[in-house]
Structure formats: C-alpha cells, structure tokens
Design a protein around this nucleic acid. Structure first.
Lengths: 193, 193
DNA sequence: GTTAAATTTGAGCGATCGTTCAATTTAATC
DNA sequence: GATTAAATTGAACGATCGCTCAAATTTAAC
C-alpha cells in the first residue's frame, strides 16, 4: 500500500473547500487525512503544495464536466443541467456550491505567488472549456453564428460565478433555478460588437 | 480631539478590503491606524467589532450609491455609470474592484457568528436597493411593467458580483465595459415566470 | 498648580500557525 | 531471521495570532 495520494487529495479538497486556503490549518488537514505532519510534508512538501494538487484535481474535474457539455449532441440542454446541478446539493454540503477557485481568489493578497498564478491559469483553462461550449452551441444552430466566442465564454463564466455566489447566500438554492433559464435565454440575446 | 473613529474606520476598510477578514491581522490594523492595540480595543472592542463598523460603513456607502440610481430621473443611464465605475479604478487599487461583502463571504466557515449575520443582512439590504432601481426603471417605462421585481433585483445583484469578480482576474478591467451593455440589454430580456 | 479622570502605551500573555527532524515502525531483499 | 531502505511518527521550534492590563501620558476641572 503506497501513500494514498488520491484519497488524501479528496479529503483535503473537502477541507479547503469548506474553510478556504487561509482558513485551513495544517492541523485541520492532519485530522482530515488521518496523517501526521511528517507524512503530509513527505508527500506534498507544504500546505501550498497540497493545495496546488487539490486545485489541479478540482480544475480537471470541472473542466471535464464543461467539456462533456461541449462534446454533447444537445449542448444547450446539457448546459442547463450543468448550471442547475449545484442548486441541488445537500444543505450539509452547502460549501460545495461556491466554486473553489473563486473562493480562494478572495484571499488574493495573502496567497503565495505559486497559488496566485495557478488560480489565474485555472480560470483561463476553464474559460477555454466555456469557449468550446459556445462554439458547439453555435455549430448546432441554437446560437447565432455571429455570437462573439470569447466574450460569450467570459460572460458564461461570469454567470456561473454569479449563480453560485448568490446560491450560497440564499435559504433555498433550488429556488434560483429560474436563473438557469435566464442565462440560457440571455445567451441568445443581444451581443453588441 | 476625540478618538478619530471615522478616519480609523476608513483606514481599516483599506486593510480589510485588501487582505480580507482572516488575512488581516491586528498588527496590520495597528500600522494602518497608527494606534497601539489598547487604543483600538478601547474604541472598537475587538477585531470583529472594528470589522463590523467597517462593513456597516461600506454597506451604507454602496447602498447610497444604488439608491442614487433609483432616485435619478434617468435610472437606466445612471445604472450604466454605476456598473461601469469599478472598471475604471486605478491598477494600484485593484483590490477595490471586488465587493468587500462578497470577498468576506468567501471565508464563511471561519467567520465569527456576528460577522456572518451582518454579511447576510448587508446583502439583503443592498438587494432592497436594487429592487428600488428595478421599480424606478419600470416606472419610467424603460422596462416592461411585468418584470418580476424580486427576481430582477437578485439577478442584478448577481451581475454586479459577476462583473466585479471577473474584473479582478483580467489584465485590463476596462476591457469588460461591453458587459455593462450586455447587462442593461438583458435586463429588458425574457423573464419567464 | 493641583488633582482627578480619561486616554494611550507597549511589553507580553496563551494559543495557534506552518514546519522540521531524530526516533521509530513498517516493508522489501536475500 | 538478519539487514537495509522507505515511510511514518509526534514532540517541539520559531513566528505570529488576537488580546490584556499595569503603567505612563494627556486632558479637564477648579
């Protein structure tokens, strides 16, 4: 049995997602991973190193979900489901509604340089996936052919952030499902060049 | 010369806005206010107490700005300017782009109970101001009379958050001014009940 | 000028932070 | 089973955290 990296990364994701980068202490991680400090440092080097692996894994999963939308035959319908999903998470896991990347970005001024650059890279990477979605929806004819791809992708990322941020400050996130319809509707709206 | 509360609150706002609630230490505040710990504790009781006054003042200012939009004779035009404003802040003050409330919300799980409830209250208070804007724009006929006020207000708050969050992760915030047009345009878009 | 009250000072408290590393336990090899 | 290598342990380090309070200073009153 080698060191359970994947399991540790998932457990650490839980903690960072709940408490944020600054709010998470090594002792929180030691408890969550059921490992003593030496083991964690042998495996990940530092708190920052562990967080970077968490961020990478998180970004990969999210990127995969968005690309699945882009690669679907019914991208608009899949986009709906993708956007709707976080509105249905259990109340006990409410912290999972907010995007981990956006959450960490809030601590910007206090983050190690390595974390800052990876966060920027992650946002840009995800934006590329949103671009793929826009391109696909355009190719199916469900979206005007002259819709500006980069702007629409950034706008979509913004809507994603807005919905998830609002959902964390509301009693019943599910009551925001009308916003999904609004987003899909506005996607086909005006895009003045 | 009594204790300079207002000045201290403004100086503390700078620090909290830059570093966040968790990221700000009492020593940061001592430096910024040029006060020794005892004075700060005599005036504000605790770090939380000082932050709550900062939050209150910040919320009041922002609420006033939004209400000024609502009370204007040309609310839609004023809304444009209100939304556009943070895109023009100096690069050296980039941290002021993001909303202080949203920023603090990111540390949710680690915040004192008193801060949590005040954040919720601040968001709700500002949403009321957004409602006033929607009502006013509706009354001028620039917006359909059947536009759902509560939803539109929450949506507008979401767009506000989205724009400010995206603007912090982009090289030139001013390049996002197209998003202001998109928001104003979508405001008159579909609102399926 | 004297006294009393109010304010400010700053050394330092106990707790917690991220991290280290000598010592120990576990796994692998012959 | 003996030997070596690899992985894990956990006490403890220096730094920093929010905060306290006796002492010093400033302000107010007569």
């Amino acid at each position: 049995m080698g060191y359970p990296r994947e399991q540790s990364i998932q457990q650490a994701t839980e903690v960072f997602w709940l408490k944020g980068y600054l709010g998470t202490g090594m002792r929180d991680l030691q408890t969550a991973l059921d490992k003593r400090p030496g083991s964690i440092y042998a495996a990940f080097g530092s708190k920052e190193g562990l967080y970077l692996e968490v961020l990478n894994h998180y970004t990969d999963v999210l990127h995969g979900q968005i690309m699945a939308v882009a690669n679907s035959d019914t991208p608009l319908q899949q986009l709906r489901e993708f956007l709707r999903f976080p509105l249905a998470v259990d109340h006990s896991a409410a912290h999972k509604i907010q995007c981990l990347i956006v959450k960490t970005q809030a601590d910007w001024a206090e983050l190690p340089e390595g974390v800052k650059s990876e966060l920027q890279a992650a946002l840009a990477h995800l934006r590329k996936a949103f671009e793929a979605v826009i391109l696909k929806v355009r190719s199916t004819g469900e979206l005007a052919a002259d819709t500006p791809v980069e702007r629409a992708a950034m706008w979509l990322q913004g809507q994603f952030i807005a919905m998830r941020t609002l959902a964390t400050s509301v009693d019943s996130p599910a009551s925001l499902s009308w916003m999904v319809d609004k987003i899909v509707s506005d996607l086909s709206g005006e895009w003045t060049e």
